[in-house]
Simulated assay, not measured.
Amino acid sequence: MKVIGAMQTPGGDWRVEVVRHPSGSRWYRLIHRDNTVDFLTIGRVAELLSQAGVDMGELTEVDAPSARAS
């Protein structure tokens, strides 16, 4: 798996990563503190962030690690 993009809230409390599998499939990963949820659609990411009171507009692009194991 490879992280090909990432965004996070200004304080870094919430992070969204775009993950690509070697097969070419992509999904989103939502990270909040010690909790990680994989295999999300962007719609589900938006829904979960909204439920937590986080506006997607608060996310800013950040450097993605070159690779991250899941």
Rank of each mutant, 00 (worst) to 15 (best):
W14Q: 06
F39N: 13
H32P: 03
R15P: 01
E61M: 02
E58K: 07
A64I: 00
V16F: 09
S23F: 05
L40C: 05
T41R: 10
V37H: 02
V18Y: 02
S66I: 05
R29Q: 14
E61D: 11
I4D: 11
M7F: 13
D63Y: 04
P22A: 06
K2L: 03
G11D: 15
A69K: 06
G57S: 13
L48F: 07
R20Q: 15
V37S: 07
Q51L: 12
M7H: 12
V37T: 14
D34Y: 04
G53K: 01
A67S: 12
L48M: 15
M56R: 08
M56D: 01
T36M: 07
I42R: 01
P65N: 05
L30K: 04
R68E: 09
L30T: 07
A52C: 01
R29E: 11
G53E: 01
T60A: 10
D13N: 13
G5M: 02
D63A: 15
R26Q: 15
R29W: 00
D55E: 13
K2H: 09
G43S: 10
P65E: 03
Q8M: 14
G43D: 15
A6I: 03
V37E: 12
G24P: 11
V18D: 06
V3G: 05
F39G: 00
W14E: 06
V19F: 03
S66V: 11
V45S: 01
G43L: 04
R44N: 08
